[in-house]
Simulated assay, not measured.
Amino acid sequence: MSQSTKKRDTAGAKAAIQVARWIEPWGESRFPVDVDFLAKGCHTMYERDDPITQVHGASWKGGDGFLQRNPDDAKEWWITYSTNVGPGRQRFTKAHELGHYILHSRQKDEFRCGPDVIVEKDTGEPNIEAQANQFASYLLMPANHVRPSIEKSPITLDLISERASFYGVSFEAMCIRFVEITGERAVLVYWDNGMMKRWSRSEPAKLQRLWIDNPKGYPLEPIPGAVAADPLVRQCPEGQIVPANLWFKNAPDGEMLREMKHTSDTFERVLSLLIVPKFYPRWALDGEEGEDDTYDRFIGGGR
């Protein structure tokens, strides 16, 4: 079965929507979501006798989260999360572990989650890490609340940053969520130490047949002429207009797109957000398929 025809796994989303109903009556005050509160009370919703009794942080290296049974009482569960990351990442990790408790704790007694599994993308195959990430994303950034808030104004990285603060998540997690739900033709590219690590497209971008050409599969450096390649531009929240075929080889000459850029103040990590107008005729020929998004097959690290 091809990537485009695989049925999406929505187990995490359905579980998150069910849990979110608890706090919907609180209105806007429910954000940022109090994951600790939900974790310690959700056993009552599911009529379980093995509650989560502790949610606590630890100064870990190489790990993000841990869900395990209490070694002294198998009827209790503990969530542990790394305090070596920012509060937004901590909140997402706790929600991820809560997703494991709700969805998977009947299957095994512990779940160790490092930076290589947090925010793994759904590829259409059963995957408990992708399900837990989907649960966390839908719980913390529900689409029916996020979508109106990003559609009322032009998309900029400043707007996404403001939304990240409102929902209490990391800037990168908010960028990923934006691309997942937007009606814009949006492409998000993640660079690490000067090399492209992964990229993701919105659904409208997939329909537009947008893809980043990398036939040899080698790590790509920023594209000459793009804002991403300019070391003098560390932040470009409004975006610059650049030729679309800098990024997409199937773009017609003369077509332009808006390229935004965010450079981390802590690490040499760069996010490029591309907003592409709708063009007609389609860029790709009928029946022509581009390569899959790297997010669709790569274990990612949306922080």
Results as ranks from 00 to 15, higher is better:
residue 4 S to M: 13
residue 4 S to W: 15
residue 5 T to G: 04
residue 12 G to S: 06
residue 13 A to R: 15
residue 13 A to N: 08
residue 14 K to D: 10
residue 21 R to H: 13
residue 25 P to R: 00
residue 27 G to Q: 02
residue 29 S to T: 14
residue 39 A to R: 00
residue 40 K to T: 06
residue 47 E to N: 15
residue 48 R to N: 05
residue 53 T to M: 11
residue 53 T to I: 11
residue 53 T to L: 09
residue 55 V to S: 03
residue 56 H to S: 15
residue 57 G to A: 14
residue 57 G to E: 08
residue 59 S to K: 15
residue 65 G to A: 09
residue 65 G to V: 02
residue 66 F to M: 04
residue 68 Q to P: 00
residue 69 R to K: 15
residue 69 R to D: 05
residue 69 R to M: 07
residue 70 N to H: 09
residue 70 N to R: 05
residue 70 N to Q: 07
residue 71 P to E: 02
residue 71 P to M: 00
residue 71 P to G: 02
residue 72 D to N: 15
residue 80 T to Q: 11
residue 85 V to L: 09
residue 87 P to F: 09
residue 89 R to L: 09
residue 93 T to S: 06
residue 96 H to W: 12
residue 99 G to K: 01
residue 101 Y to K: 03
residue 103 L to A: 10
residue 104 H to G: 03
residue 104 H to C: 05
residue 108 K to V: 12
residue 108 K to F: 07
residue 111 F to N: 01
residue 111 F to R: 02
residue 112 R to M: 13
residue 112 R to W: 13
residue 112 R to P: 04
residue 114 G to M: 05
residue 115 P to N: 12
residue 115 P to L: 12
residue 118 I to R: 00
residue 125 E to W: 12
residue 128 I to N: 07
residue 130 A to L: 03
residue 132 A to V: 10
residue 133 N to L: 03
residue 133 N to F: 00
residue 136 A to D: 09
residue 136 A to H: 03
residue 137 S to R: 04
residue 137 S to G: 10
residue 142 P to W: 12
residue 145 H to P: 00
residue 154 P to F: 11
residue 154 P to V: 13
residue 157 L to N: 03
residue 158 D to F: 06
residue 158 D to H: 10
residue 159 L to P: 02
residue 161 S to Y: 12
residue 162 E to M: 11
residue 162 E to W: 05
residue 164 A to T: 08
residue 165 S to Y: 12
residue 167 Y to C: 02
residue 170 S to C: 04
residue 171 F to Q: 00
residue 172 E to Y: 12
residue 179 V to M: 00
residue 181 I to T: 03
residue 184 E to C: 08
residue 184 E to R: 07
residue 184 E to A: 13
residue 186 A to S: 10
residue 190 Y to P: 01
residue 191 W to V: 01
residue 193 N to W: 06
residue 193 N to C: 09
residue 194 G to C: 06
residue 194 G to L: 04
residue 196 M to Y: 03
residue 199 W to P: 02
residue 200 S to I: 08
residue 201 R to A: 07
residue 201 R to L: 08
residue 203 E to G: 07
residue 203 E to N: 11
residue 204 P to K: 05
residue 205 A to K: 00
residue 209 R to S: 14
residue 209 R to M: 10
residue 209 R to A: 15
residue 212 I to C: 07
residue 212 I to K: 02
residue 215 P to M: 10
residue 219 P to M: 09
residue 225 G to H: 08
residue 225 G to E: 04
residue 226 A to Y: 03
residue 229 A to M: 05
residue 231 P to G: 06
residue 232 L to G: 13
residue 235 Q to F: 06
residue 240 Q to F: 07
residue 242 V to C: 10
residue 243 P to L: 05
residue 245 N to T: 05
residue 245 N to M: 06
residue 251 A to K: 03
residue 251 A to G: 07
residue 256 M to I: 10
residue 259 E to G: 07
residue 262 H to D: 07
residue 263 T to Q: 15
residue 264 S to I: 04
residue 268 E to C: 08
residue 269 R to V: 08
residue 276 V to M: 01
residue 278 K to E: 15
residue 278 K to D: 14
residue 279 F to E: 10
residue 285 L to Y: 09
residue 288 E to V: 13
residue 288 E to P: 00
residue 290 G to Q: 02
residue 295 Y to M: 08
residue 298 F to N: 12
residue 300 G to C: 13
